[in-house]
Simulated scan of single mutants.
Amino acid sequence: MEDSELIILQKAHNEFNSKNFKRAEEIYTQFIESCTKSRDCNALDLAIAYNNRGQVKYLRVDFYEAMDDYTSAIQINSQFEVPLYNRGLIHYRLGFFKEAERDFRRVLELNPGFKDAKESLSQTLLDSEEKWKRGYTDARH
């Protein structure tokens, strides 16, 4: 990876950590575009950039756009449990319990000690069962 790409990524992280989310999103986008054109781009850095840009979108309640970024991060690095967990949270919030359950279970396959994923899976299963009991038969399918 070129030094300029690393500098861009670090700037994006700094803006994100400073809660300058609009600017962070712009810089993550710049990094993603640059990285996807590069032949020697670090896959984990790219996955982190997608995940973090997804977090910015999540915070502004653009759930579907955030899910797209999380999915991109997962496609780049299928062992990266954080975007799986984040995508699972959105599935849960949207009431897509089957998809949320699948994401949380995959997180726990990758990292059995991921406490928040265990709790989220538990809550997803409870809410799915409750939805099923109330007559929403598609909740468990």
Results as ranks from 00 to 15, higher is better:
Ser34Val: 12
Cys35Leu: 03
Cys35Phe: 02
Thr36Lys: 15
Lys37Val: 09
Arg39Glu: 14
Cys41Ala: 03
Cys41Leu: 01
Cys41Gln: 02
Asn42Val: 08
Leu44Asp: 10
Asp45Glu: 14
Leu46Thr: 02
Leu46Glu: 02
Leu46Ser: 01
Ile48His: 03
Ala49Ser: 13
Tyr50Phe: 15
Arg53Gly: 01
Arg53His: 08
Arg53Glu: 12
Val56Gly: 03
Val56Tyr: 03
Lys57Leu: 13
Lys57Met: 01
Lys57Ile: 03
Leu59Pro: 01
Leu59Ser: 11
Arg60Pro: 00
Arg60Tyr: 10
Arg60Ile: 13
Val61Gly: 00
Val61Asp: 12
Asp62His: 14
Asp62Phe: 10
Phe63Asn: 14
Tyr64Met: 11
Tyr64Val: 12
Tyr64Arg: 13
Glu65Ile: 04
Ala66Lys: 06
Met67Gln: 14
Met67Ala: 03
Asp68Val: 12
Asp69Val: 15
Tyr70Ile: 08
Tyr70Gln: 02
Tyr70Trp: 04
Tyr70Glu: 01
Thr71Met: 01
Ser72His: 13
Ser72Asp: 15
Ala73Asp: 06
Ala73Phe: 09
Ala73Ile: 05
Ile74Trp: 00
Ile74Ala: 05
Gln75Cys: 02
Gln75Leu: 14
Asn77Val: 12
Asn77Glu: 15
Ser78Leu: 05
Gln79Lys: 15
Gln79Leu: 13
Gln79Arg: 15
Phe80Leu: 06
Phe80Val: 02
Glu81Ser: 14
Glu81Trp: 05
Val82Pro: 00
Val82Met: 13
Leu84His: 01
Leu84Arg: 01
Tyr85Asp: 01
Tyr85Ala: 12
Tyr85Leu: 11
Asn86Cys: 09
Asn86Pro: 05
Arg87Gly: 07
Gly88Ile: 13
His91Glu: 11
His91Gln: 07
Tyr92Glu: 01
Leu94Gly: 13
Gly95Tyr: 08
Gly95Ala: 06
Phe96Thr: 07
Phe97Ile: 00
Lys98His: 12
Lys98Met: 10
Glu99Cys: 05
Glu99Ser: 13
Glu101Asp: 10
Glu101Asn: 11
